[in-house]
Design a protein around this nucleic acid. Sequence first.
DNA 1: TCTGGGGTCCTAGGACCC
DNA 2: TCTGGGGTCCTAGGACCC
Length: 394
Amino acid sequence: MAEAVLFHVDLDAFYASVERRDDPSLQGKAIIVGARPGSRGVVSSCSYEARRFGVRSAMPIGEAYRRCPHGVFLPVRMRRYLEVSGQVMELLRSYAPVFQQLSIDEAFMDLSGTGRLYGPPEQLGERIKQQVRLGTGLTLSIGIAPNRYLAKLASEACKPDGLLRIHGGEEAAFLEGLPLARLWGVGDKTRQRLSELGIDTVTALRGLSEEALCGAMGEAGGRYLYRAARGIEPGAFSAEPKSRSLSSEMTFESDVASAKTIGRCLLELCQQVMYRLIKDDLSSNTVFLKLRLFDFSTTTAQKTVGHWLASSEELHKLVLELLGQRWDGSTPVRLIGVGAANVLSSGHPVQGELFEDEFARRRKVEEAVTRLRERMEGVRLTKASLIHPPEDAP
DNA sequence: TCTGGGGTCCTAGGACCC
DNA sequence: TCTGGGGTCCTAGGACCC
């Protein structure tokens, strides 16, 4: 059987590259997309010019400013990035019978058996890169390998604007040279834990039996690492998630201890969550609250009810109950979040407490609000309690 | 340095049922 | 009387990724 051919395609410094393409005067500059300097927030994306000064994604924005004060700091324009991403993904999809988008800026393409149609994979890769460059002005990196996991590592290794193919049989040689942290799925904690076991390289990791790894890292973790170290697809990219969840959260500019302010912001988050459920025709019977306190300690609480959640008021009521269980009313709060878990597409029968027409009635009201919001884009449509100025406002 | 926002998956304990 | 084995669901926390 012919070797499987998987592409992992990854747009380089995506948000920053879109900004540069939309404003050519940014060419050659250190672009840093993310939170406003001086605020609580992080870098979402930065150009390679900025990386030379040590700026990285997820770095606190203040730290990025210290390292690169002459950088161009820009806010995130998610709508624009989604638009450009859509153009690129559409092009990629047209080549691949089996296509899996992983995130806004990366995707897998299964091109096994397309040699006769497209020629050698490396040639096809170059053609795709050129087409994307001409069509959108963006560069991307492509990893080609016999499975998705290796393809992902390959694109990572050849960034930016690269192309790298790993053939079957070359797995060991490729992995040999990689630092442990480059393995997808190995983060800080796992690296530390392995280091305590005397494991600091992929080669050393390969010296451990599957049993030993499972004993040290747990059943699933051990099996994962055993395979990852050998370039065997460890099952890292499931095609369909087991369950879905959806959430909205916000970090306060400075910590808040006012129950009134927190309650009002929670209502707004509940509205956002309910809006998204309805817009995508989804149902959920589980609500969760997330709290991060002044000291960055984080706690969550959740509750499952016997019916589908039908309105943002109901969501808000449940969330306030959870808040009562988790917050003493005076500890300063840094972040609050609200979410729905056990999310399914609607059309499932309504169960339990609420009569069907009562559920339908409430849902109709929410749907009307949703439609209004969509029509009046940019207009703030919100509950009266959110419009009044907060009593504790300056 | 002082840590966003949106997700998925795993673990472990307890409740409950057969 | 003192104890099984499994399965499923729920909950809280944590690791990891983009």
